[in-house]
């Protein structure tokens, strides 16, 4: 794989200023420019511009159908699994346009892990689930795999619960455990970014709390983009928040600012529970 990150390029970082968010020293991982997306005739994403910085948690909130899930699935091009999708504009990942013809979508997804709405472990053993990523990318050395599996499960704070039954089927785990296993599976290829699409929507409150703590922990090593319909969750765990409405970014700013002094009336209406 070509080195996607390269040397820090100070010039491109200035682009973040355009959104009004505070300019920092942190590098931009994902920069979305004039992104439009249609499902057939349906204009699902409209002129999205969004810079996302590394080692931060960026939350994407908004009512159902606002395009937040579509957006996060566009970031690793999973959205293209739906055949009627059309896209214009660009998304730069580490300064390269992911829609570029020469850009291998598999490379992108190797660097960008994803955790889905519903826990979706493979019907294989716990060990095999975590080892899946490294294996398909050619790592076969049993010792290295063992190490990766242990480290990833520890990273996802589930090691203690499963270390004695690594060879059991993943579907024997509880929903919350399954979701943390899925996070471990994503960690196993040591991604640069982790995309989380409403990762706690199918979980009970205690499991939700565990995943949230985990996200805080993971922030140190990864850039995390999390879609959530739960505003408290966004407020609790994210550094920046983007508010989506009808396919548009209404407001994007520091989470504190969004939840205390939103600049747009619609944001205020949403976070105060007046709609959505």
């Amino acid at each position: 794989m070509t080195v996607l990150t390269g040397k820090a390029n100070a010039k491109t970082n200035n682009l973040s200023a355009s959104t009004g968010s505070e300019t920092e020293n942190k590098k931009i991982v994902y920069n979305t420019k004039d992104l439009n997306l249609w499902y057939g005739e349906d204009h699902a994403l409209k002129n999205i511009n969004l810079p996302i910085h590394e080692n931060e948690v960026t939350a994407i909130i908004g009512p159902s159908g606002c395009g937040k899930s579509t957006y996060i699935k566009t970031l690793n091009r999973m959205v293209e699994m739906i055949p009627i999708v059309r896209i214009s504009g660009e998304i730069l990942y580490r300064e390269r346009n992911i829609f570029d013809k020469n850009f291998q979508v598999e490379d992108l997804r190797t660097r960008v892990g994803m955790v889905f709405q519903k826990p979706n472990p493979f019907p294989k053993s716990i060990y095999e689930n975590v080892a899946y990523g490294p294996k398909i990318h050619g790592i076969r050395d049993k010792k290295i795999l063992d190490e990766i599996v242990e480290k990833s499960l520890k990273g996802a704070a589930i090691w203690n619960e499963v270390k004695d039954r690594l060879n059991e089927n993943a579907y024997g785990l509880s929903g919350g455990q399954q979701q943390r296993l899925c996070i471990a599976r994503a960690l196993a290829i040591e991604p640069d970014v982790i995309l989380m699409d409403e990762p706690t929507s199918a979980l009970d409150p205690i499991s939700t709390l565990k995943v949230e703590e985990l996200v805080q922990e993971l922030k140190k090593d990864f850039s995390i983009i999390i879609v959530t319909h739960n505003m408290q969750q966004a407020a609790r765990i994210s550094d920046k928040t983007a508010f989506f409405l009808s396919g548009e970014v209404i407001e994007f700013a520091e989470t504190d600012k969004i939840f205390s002094t939103p600049s747009d009336k619609r944001t205020e209406d949403y976070i105060t529970g007046r709609f959505g």
Binding site: V3, H137, I144
Partner: peptide, 15 residues
């Protein structure tokens, strides 16, 4: 922190 190279580098190598 590790004796082995990072997984991402290993993957890049294998690629």
């Amino acid at each position: 922190q590790h004796s082995r190279p990072a997984v991402s580098d290993l993957i890049a190598q294998k690629k």
